[in-house]
C-alpha cells in the first residue's frame, strides 16, 4: 500500500476513491496480528532456536544434558553415523511409501466423492470421512493393534478361510507401521483432493467430452492438471506430519519399525543427550524439506515434455 501525502497530485491508479480511508484507521488492524506474532515468537521461534543452538554443543559427562562452551558440527556427524542413519532411511521409506499409498487410495475415492456421489448424500459422506480424523489418534492406532494381533479375531478369520496357514505376523514390523500411518493420515489427503476435484466444474469436463475426448483422456488432460494445487496440498499435509510421527511407530512398530521421531524422543527422555537429540531434530527437518524439494523438482522435470507438447494455447502465440 502506498502512503498518500495530502498535497501530492491525486493519482488513484491503485485505489478507487471509495476505498480511501484515513491512515489512523489502517494502523490498528495491522496491529491485530501482533498478539499472535508475540505468542508464536515466545513459544515457537525462541524454543526452536534454542534447539538449534544446542545442536552445536555436546553432552558433558553422564549427568549433564548439554553444554555449549565448545561449538562444532560433531553432533551432526554423530546423528548421521550408520546406526542412526539407518533410522532416517527407514523413516524416509515409510514417509514416501505411505504418502504414495494415500495418494493412490485417495484419487479414485475423492473423485467419486466430488463427482459421482449423489448430491444429497455428499455432506454426510464427507462427515464420515472426517469422523476418524476427529477420533483420538492414539486410540485409532490401538484399534489397529487389536485388529493386527496374531491371536486376534482377524488373524483367526484369515486362518479359518484358508487365506493364511499360520497366525497373522505383521504386528511390530514396518508393514504394521505403514498400515497405521496410511490409516492415520488418509483423511488429510482425501479432503484437499475432494475440494480440488470439486472445483473442476462440470461444464469443463463436458466441453472436453464434446470435443471428442474420452472419459479417461478428459481425466488425464483436464481434471488432473486442474486439481494439481489440491494434490500438492494433500501430499504436503500427509508427508510432513508422517515423517515426524512417533506415536504410530511406538504403538505398532516395536523395535523393528523404528522411526526418526522416536529416536529424537529417546535422546531427550532416555539417553539425556540433548545436544545429539537436537542435531537429530534439525536433521529430521532438513530431511523433510530437502526430500520434498527433490520430489517437486523431479515431478516438474518429468512433466516437462508433456507441458511442451500438450499445452493449450488460447489466442495467438506471440
Amino acid at each position: 500500500m502506498t502512503t498518500h501525502s495530502t498535497n501530492a497530485p491525486v493519482t488513484m491508479l491503485d485505489t478507487p476513491p471509495a476505498r480511501r480511508r484515513p491512515d489512523w484507521l489502517k494502523g490498528p488492524r495491522a496491529a491485530l496480528a501482533l498478539p499472535a506474532w508475540a505468542w508464536l515468537t515466545a513459544f515457537f521461534v525462541a524454543p526452536v532456536g534454542m534447539v538449534l543452538w544446542f545442536s552445536f554443543g555436546y553432552k558433558p559427562g553422564i549427568f549433564g544434558t548439554h553444554a555449549n562452551d565448545r561449538l562444532s558440527f560433531d553432533r551432526y556427524a554423530e546423528a548421521l553415523s550408520p546406526t542412526f542413519f539407518q533410522t532416517f532411511q527407514n523413516t524416509l521409506w515409510v514417509g514416501v511409501t505411505g504418502t504414495l499409498i494415500c495418494l493412490a487410495i485417495s484419487i479414485p475415492f475423492a473423485y467419486w466423492l466430488a463427482v459421482k456421489a449423489a448430491n444429497r448424500h455428499r455432506g454426510i459422506l464427507l462427515a464420515m470421512v472426517m469422523i476418524p480424523f476427529w477420533t483420538n489418534f492414539l486410540i485409532r492406532t490401538i484399534g489397529w493393534q487389536i485388529i493386527l494381533a496374531p491371536e486376534g479375531w482377524f488373524s483367526g478369520l484369515l486362518q479359518a478361510t484358508g487365506a493364511l496357514d499360520e497366525p497373522l505376523d505383521v504386528m511390530f514390523t514396518r508393514t504394521a507401521v505403514l498400515i497405521g500411518v496410511v490409516y492415520n493420515y488418509l483423511p488429510l489427503m482425501v479432503l484437499p483432493l475432494f475440494v480440488a476435484f470439486d472445483r473442476v466444474i462440470l461444464p469443463l469436463r463436458e466441453a472436453s467430452k464434446d470435443l471428442g475426448a474420452g472419459r479417461w483422456s478428459t481425466f488425464i488432460n483436464i481434471t488432473l492438471p486442474l486439481a494439481k494445487p489440491g494434490i500438492i496440498v494433500g501430499i504436503l499435509l500427509v508427508y510432513i506430519p508422517l515423517m515426524g510421527d512417533y506415536i504410530t511407530a511406538t504403538v505398532l512398530g516395536g523395535a523393528k519399525g523404528n522411526m526418526a521421531g522416536q529416536m529424537v524422543a529417546n535422546q531427550f527422555q532416555t539417553a539425556q543427550n540433548w545436544a545429539l537429540g537436537s542435531a537429530m531434530a534439525v536433521v529430521l527437518i532438513l530431511t523433510i524439506l530437502i526430500s520434498a524439494a527433490i520430489a517437486f523438482l523431479v515431478a516438474w522435470l518429468a512433466s516437462w515434455p508433456l507441458r511442451a507438447r500438450g499445452r493449450l494455447v488460447l489466442g495467438s502465440p506471440k
Partner: peptide, 28 residues
C-alpha cells in the same frame, strides 16, 4: 509488507514436526 513475513512464520509453525516442538518446549 509484514504479511509475507508473518505467513512464513505461520507456515513454519505448521510444517515443523510435532516432535521438534515437543523437544524444544521441554527445555524452554
Amino acid at each position: 509488507k509484514w504479511v509475507p513475513w508473518f505467513l512464513v512464520l505461520l507456515v513454519l509453525v505448521t510444517v515443523t514436526p510435532e516432535i521438534v516442538d515437543a523437544v524444544a518446549l521441554l527445555p524452554w
